[in-house]
Write a protein that binds this DNA or RNA. Sequence first.
DNA 1: CCATGTCCTGGCCACCCGGCCAGTTTCGCA
DNA 2: TGCGAAACTGGCCGGGTGGCCAGGACATGG
Lengths: 123, 123
Amino acid sequence: MSEDKTAEIVLSLEIDDPALADRLAVLLSNVAGLRLAAPGETAAATIVARDPRIMPEDIALTQRELDVLALMAEGASNKMIARQLGISVHTVKFHVGSLLDKLDATGRTDAVAHAARRGVIEL
Amino acid sequence: MSEDKTAEIVLSLEIDDPALADRLAVLLSNVAGLRLAAPGETAAATIVARDPRIMPEDIALTQRELDVLALMAEGASNKMIARQLGISVHTVKFHVGSLLDKLDATGRTDAVAHAARRGVIEL
DNA sequence: CCATGTCCTGGCCACCCGGCCAGTTTCGCA
DNA sequence: TGCGAAACTGGCCGGGTGGCCAGGACATGG
């Protein structure tokens, strides 16, 4: 093997739609310099396609709610968020309440999970 | 459009490593039946490759801890988790405590976020 | 000018959470 | 056979969380 300048790029597939996965697998199997990962093999990159029907409408969050949400995702308590943003704990609770409402969540943990799922925040 | 048997599959690239992104773009641009997404275009699938140096060691979680963690990610309270798993709230707290410890988290929200980041769970 | 929306604040309160103490059982492994 | 790891349970308690009430400031736009 020595100096194979065109080292293969290993790709893995994580696609919900079996038909799409199949078509891609066929197409990609014929590309030189590229290979699909064997089961358990570590890939250089992953082809993902999650069910798109999940995020039709994006949530309308105010800037302040996004601020609070971001800090929540870092595991900050209401008190820490209040200090960070220079506002009172009551106000933080107010925004958290709005977030739980808009994100249809039962608690702050659920809220960041939902937000992450919908791409509102990046973990 | 009726029956275009060779409907193009649109792929988008989200790759941290510019070199890898380049090589892939070149390779894929020559594949028939496949096309890279234009900026802003909605792709059928995405090729992702995040910095791998982020997850060297995976966390050793027991089966029970994984059970609890999964329910936590659903926003379940300790009481709900207890009911779901048929154990006492005290035991749930016990496992949650271990999770906070192992995941180096300050609270359940932080724990879920960390676990998701490390790929321990899927949101 | 007033309605609406966002942001901000306060008090009150039931409940939840996480950390501390303690203990039991069951399992596999040395 | 003893020993540790995992799982499970209990009580206690300070602090956090979320829901409810109420209010004020400020900007946008009808």
